Simulated scan of single mutants.
Amino acid sequence: MSEPNIVLTRIDNRLVHGQVGVVWTSSVGANLLLVANDETANDQLQQELMAATAETSGVGIRFWTIDKTISTIHKASPRQHIFLVIRNAQDARRLVEGGVPVKNLNLGNMHFSKGKVQVTKYTYMDDQDKADLKYCADHGVNVYVQEVPEDKKQPLEEVI
């Protein structure tokens, strides 16, 4: 099996929306959005809404569980420029543990919820998030915060 051409992996609680589906997709030169999220892989309504955004950008879109992503992504064609979108740090860690070759992990929106503290304007983390992201970094992943492509990248070690 060959290594998939993952142009970027992004954590965004919202998954695919205008900013991800249009701005980021064109910025990284993706032609396929791969949403790796267990809940969304089984939610037809969410898929339809996200597919409409992908269609606007003229790219393909797939909805896979984390396990399917781990077992299938290595079968990707070299011509697929994959933008991998996930919901949280736990899914990022599962992908890295499962052997998905994540090189760059962009932290986009990680919304506030109970127990999370603000580390940047749009990024909230708890101790588990920090541990999972540190695990990814310790396994060769370049982890950084960058809301939009025009923003300066903030390395993980600067924000936690």
Rank of each mutant, 00 (worst) to 15 (best):
V148A: 07
T120C: 02
R87I: 02
V143M: 09
N142H: 14
E147R: 12
N104Q: 15
V100Y: 00
W64D: 10
P78S: 11
K68A: 12
N142K: 11
Y124H: 15
V85W: 02
G99H: 03
Q128W: 09
H111D: 14
H111Y: 12
H81M: 10
P149V: 05
K75S: 15
I86W: 01
N88V: 02
D127W: 05
S57V: 04
Q90D: 13
P149G: 06
K68L: 00
E55Y: 05
N104D: 15
F83R: 02
E147Y: 12
A137K: 11
V148S: 04
H81V: 03
D132W: 04
S113A: 14
T123W: 02
A89G: 04
Q128R: 14
A92F: 00
H139Q: 09
V143I: 07
D67L: 06
Q118T: 10
D127V: 11
T72H: 11
Q146P: 06
T123K: 01
N88R: 06
K114S: 13
Q128F: 12
S113P: 07
S71K: 14
D132G: 12
A137N: 08
H139F: 07
E150S: 13
V117D: 11
T53H: 03
D91P: 01
H74I: 06
Y144P: 01
I70K: 05
K103T: 08
E55A: 14
F112S: 13
V141F: 07
V102G: 11
A137G: 10
I70R: 03
I82Y: 03
Q80H: 12
K134T: 15
N104A: 14
G98M: 03
F63R: 03
I66M: 01
K153C: 01
Y135K: 09
R87F: 00
P101V: 02
F83P: 10
M110G: 06
F63I: 02
H139C: 02
A131G: 04
L107A: 03
N109L: 13
L107V: 11
R62N: 12
F83W: 05
V59Q: 05
W64S: 09
D138Q: 13
V143P: 10
Y135S: 10
H74V: 06
K103I: 00
Y144C: 05
Q80N: 13
V148D: 04
K116S: 08
E150V: 10
L133N: 09
Q128N: 13
T69E: 05
D151L: 01
S71Y: 08
V148H: 02
V148I: 14
D67W: 00
H81Q: 13
G108N: 06
K134E: 15
W64F: 11
V141E: 09
T72Q: 14
R62L: 12
M125A: 14
Q118P: 05
K152I: 12
D138C: 11
H139N: 15
Y124T: 11
G99V: 04
Q128V: 15
K75F: 07
D129A: 08
E97Q: 15
W64Y: 13
P101K: 02
L107G: 03
T72L: 08
Y135E: 05
D138E: 15
K130F: 06
T53I: 14
D151P: 01
D132V: 10
I82C: 02
A54M: 04
K153G: 05
L84T: 02
G140N: 08
A54C: 04
N104H: 15
G98E: 05
R79M: 12
P78W: 00
G108C: 12
